[in-house]
Nucleic acid binder design. Structure first.
Lengths: 156, 156
DNA sequence: AGCGGAAAATATACATGCTAATCATTGCCG
DNA sequence: CGGCAATGATTAGCATGTATATTTTCCGCT
């Protein structure tokens, strides 16, 4: 209606990225539940990383999933309560936990992968391969820049 | 370590989008707090939409911010408690609330906009304009596809 | 040795999103 | 006109993310 300064959120690239990311995640969530799997997209990522490399520390898991330590703690609580993963105290460093998938956890990952592949195939069906590469490159470009941006808290 | 089926999360476009979106949002959050503004990125979007058009219904606000009705309710609770916005019962339909920014709310938006612009300028500094356009187009493309995808629950 | 800081994990408090259920109001339709 | 489905909003329950503080354990360094 009125706009005393020029700004248009709707053309903001960052907003568009967030918007698309949100919808993609929600779609994946629904793909999981409608296939009868009681698992969230976040749990899926953790399970996937554990499938890749068992025995990770929670810190390592956090790095590989780009999640906070506290989020990892809680997600593992749930995965353990669903008997999909288990924590084992590290023998050499008793501060650490080593995380392993249970057989059920491995099974679940193997069921989830085709689902994820199918979902991605459909969601990106209209995006030609060269656009996907371009997209990846642009996003990597942005992240590189974000890495270089000073943390507001420790500019020293 | 072992990979009985071919899948690589790290090359998944959807994962990259989510990753970048997450980091962008966190950077914006920190830009706000380090500038002394007690406001979240989600609240920013709501405030911005209200600045654009005062007197929106919560449903309309939800559409314009791509947020759930319940999220809108709670965010407005907080904005009201911070005296940035206020709800007024619609005279013609007493189920609806019309939402308005307070003077403080308008002031805040006007302070936030330059912050957001500066942040975006820095985050996307390495992305040439034609790449931004391309990015927007690809994302729009994906969303169009998502719109066309059947809701798992009501495929009819 | 042994002290003190760093590291790993947990706990806590708050903000958000999703789902499902509920309440009040509206309005259509027989 | 009168009941009942649809609509706007709220509430409650769960999962996640952020920030901060705490606990336990390790390790470097004097």
């Amino acid at each position: 209606m009125h706009a005393p300064f020029p700004y248009d959120l709707d053309t903001a690239v960052g907003y568009a990225i967030g918007h698309t990311a949100h919808r993609l995640k929600m779609g994946l969530r629904r793909a999981f539940t409608s296939a009868g799997h009681d698992v969230t997209p976040e749990q899926w990522v953790v399970l996937y990383r554990l499938y890749e490399s068992q025995g990770l520390t929670q810190v390592e898991l956090g790095e590989r999933t780009v999640k906070d330590k506290t989020s990892i703690t809680r997600i593992l609580d749930r995965l353990e309560s669903k008997a999909l993963a288990e924590r084992r105290r590290d023998a050499h460093d008793r501060r650490s936990q080593r995380i392993f998938l249970t057989p059920d956890g491995r099974d679940l990952v193997e069921h989830l992968v085709p689902l994820v592949r199918a979902y991605a195939a459909e969601a990106f069906a209209d995006v030609p391969p060269e656009d996907r590469d371009h997209l990846r490159r642009i996003l990597a470009n942005i992240e590189t820049r974000l890495d270089a941006m000073p943390e507001p808290k420790d500019p020293a």
